[in-house]
């Protein structure tokens, strides 16, 4: 295995705790190769979102989060980078789609202006070029009549439309790695399929790597090469997606797979 490419992201012994409380993520290690897609599944509270946020060193608002271990990205340890250098990575090289769309959008700015700002800041586009790109991006994530809807405020969008805006913002800078935390939970299955296809295409065309967090096993099944199952802040099973779904080894993984609701489960 000497010719395996060095990982883009190499997380070693990551631990995360809120203040002085017991750690909620304990000694986890995983890696993501360039262009690779890895999935994270597990019950609510198992530490998926905290893990995702740790990679970008983003604590939830008002919650002091402390980290230990190493997060190696392009050979440097992100946990040791100063905040200025970290800002160059966030949103530009590694982008994230957060779980809660409303709290990550600015309620008093139009949706379009928020995407314009990102593009001007990170891609150095002029205001006019940024707006053209913004309209393209909104169309790409399936917002109808994007030129007009760019002038809406977030509260004028449905839940699913807001979630799509976050995806548009995240992919706007063509990141090397996209961390998507439950990116399609608010979407109907046909729009979900379009978004998943879009993510696949970005992987193919930009060589973008993907860290996908979802409690929907169907979504994970079609999107990633490897899966990590989290329970109580630890990774309890890791495997190739086909093997893990065909023959889960950990009882917890089996229990989760058994709980997936089926279409024919009538009342």
């Amino acid at each position: 295995m000497t010719d395996a490419p060095p990982p883009l992201l190499d997380v070693r012994g990551l631990t995360a705790a809120f203040g002085r409380a017991a750690p909620v993520v304990r000694d986890i290690s995983f890696h993501v190769a360039p262009g690779e897609a890895v999935g994270f599944v597990g019950e609510s509270g198992s530490g998926k979102s905290v893990t995702a946020r740790a990679v970008l060193r983003l604590a939830p608002e008002g919650s002091p989060l402390v980290w230990g271990g190493q997060i190696l990205y392009g050979g440097q340890d992100l946990l040791r980078l100063d905040e200025h250098a970290m800002r160059g990575i966030r949103g530009r090289r590694i982008a994230m789609v957060f779980q809660d769309p409303m709290s990550s959008l600015n309620p008093v700015m139009t949706v379009g202006a928020q995407i314009d700002d990102m593009l001007m800041q990170h891609m150095g586009l002029s205001r006019r070029a940024a707006r053209r790109r913004t309209v393209d991006l909104l169309g790409l994530v399936g917002i109808r009549d994007p030129a007009m809807r760019a002038d809406d405020h977030p509260h004028q969008f449905s839940g699913g439309m807001r979630q799509r805006v976050l995806i548009a913002i995240a992919v706007s800078c063509e990141p090397d790695l996209l961390i998507a935390d439950e990116p399609t939970t608010a979407l109907d299955v046909t729009v979900q399929a379009q978004i998943l296809r879009l993510l696949m295409r970005l992987r193919r065309e930009l060589g973008m790597a993907l860290m996908l967090i979802s409690h929907d096993f169907g979504v994970i099944a079609g999107m990633v090469e490897r899966v990590h199952v989290m329970q109580g802040g630890e990774i309890v099973e890791t495997g190739d997606v086909d093997a893990l779904f065909a023959a889960p080894r950990h009882p917890y993984t089996r229990a989760l797979l058994d709980a997936v609701p089926r279409l024919d489960a009538r009342r």
Partner: peptide
Amino acid sequence: AVPVVDPARQRALL
């Protein structure tokens, strides 16, 4: 379009 918990079929579906 409902996702299925079977990687090969789900990839084909997408």
